[in-house]
């Protein structure tokens, strides 16, 4: 199949991959560690712009990827530090603010193309097949990393911070360090996704990293089921592809995202994963809520 990949297929695979990466990266912050972020697109954008700038300096694509991640997680570290100072309710608003500040800043920067966008991003030099390969490899690597973290003691600690951070503290957990780690890892991966996106579109405008994008990423995590890795992947793929294949869905994409968020919260706050968990639990006639959203 590789040699006959058309431009449309390539773009589908890359966009799905980028969205899965983004959803998984936010899942580490919001899903595993319970810190709701409404500004994830900012880290995605920082990675993308950093990649564009680095690429223009002549840094090769495969070196740009981790560097863009580093730039992303530098901002993530700052936001993480800020998040420690504010209550949970404030965090959502602070991260949303970071998103607005990022877009508001880039819009006015001529060296980043301002409103007109940045279009002189170099070619990655890998060819279509090579680029698709890199995307898929990144998705697999991030999924495996997520699964590893979830099963490690770090993920165990994240779960207690998400559940009840005060009690977690009385058991000796340095909640601040755990939250920062989640932010650093999640925003690093968002930066990598940004670099991938930049090299794919080779054209960046501030609007591609706005509040709507942050909400779309959040929708993938929430609809998939906070914390569930397979659920988030399924949701990210479905929410990216449905508008492509169903015309009506494309016309009302944002409307459908909104309605999906409401319905998920109202009917199954555990998302897809929670729903499947409940179904299989009731079939096995186990008590409900035995594991809830985190199978």
């Amino acid at each position: 199949m590789l040699p006959t990949l058309g431009a449309y297929e390539v773009s589908l695979i890359v966009i799905v991959s980028v969205n899965v990466m983004l959803a998984l990266s936010l899942n580490i912050i919001t899903g595993l560690c319970g810190q709701v972020s409404l500004g994830h697109a900012a880290f995605f954008g920082v990675g993308a712009y950093a990649a564009a700038v680095l690429g223009n300096l002549g840094v090769p694509f495969l070196v740009v990827l981790p560097l863009a991640g580093l730039v992303g997680c530098l901002l993530g570290l700052l936001v993480g530090l800020a998040s420690l100072r504010v209550r949970a309710d404030f965090l959502a608003i602070t991260t949303m603010g970071v998103g607005f500040v990022f877009v508001g800043f880039v819009r006015k920067q001529n060296w980043l193309g301002a409103e007109m966008g940045l279009s002189n991003i170099p070619d990655h030099g890998l060819g279509d097949a090579g680029f698709v390969g890199v995307c898929l490899a990144l998705v697999v690597a991030i999924a495996l990393l997520s699964a590893y973290i979830k099963r490690s003691w770090l993920g165990f600690g994240f779960a207690t911070v998400a559940d009840d951070e005060d009690t977690s503290r009385t058991l000796g957990i340095d909640v601040a360090a755990y939250k920062l780690t989640a932010f650093v890892v999640g925003t690093f991966l968002a930066g990598v996704a940004g670099a991938t996106y930049a090299y794919f579109t080779r054209f960046l405008i501030p609007g591609a990293f706005g509040f709507g994008v942050s909400i779309s990423i959040l929708a993938m995590v929430i609809v998939g089921g906070v914390g569930s890795i397979w659920g988030v992947i399924v949701a990210a793929v479905a929410l990216t592809l449905l508008p492509e294949f169903i015309r009506v869905v494309n016309d009302y994409k944002i409307f459908i995202y909104g309605v999906l968020l409401v319905l998920t919260m109202r009917l199954s706050p555990g998302g897809l994963a929670g729903l499947v968990g409940q179904l299989s639990a009731s079939r096995a006639e186990m008590p409900p809520r035995s594991a809830g959203a985190q199978p």
């Binding site: 709701v36 409404l38 949970a88 309710d89 959502a92 909400i215 959040l218 929708a219 929430i222 009302y252 944002i254 409307f255 995202y257 909104g258 309605v259 999906l260 968020l261 409401v262 998920t264 919260m265 109202r266 706050p269």
Partner: peptide
Amino acid sequence: LYEPLLAQPPYVALIASIGLFIAMEEG
């Protein structure tokens, strides 16, 4: 929207509210 969600963690109502807002604007 909110009354049935008050017993849930606070982010549930927040996200439901964002969803409703987006849907309203698009509506």
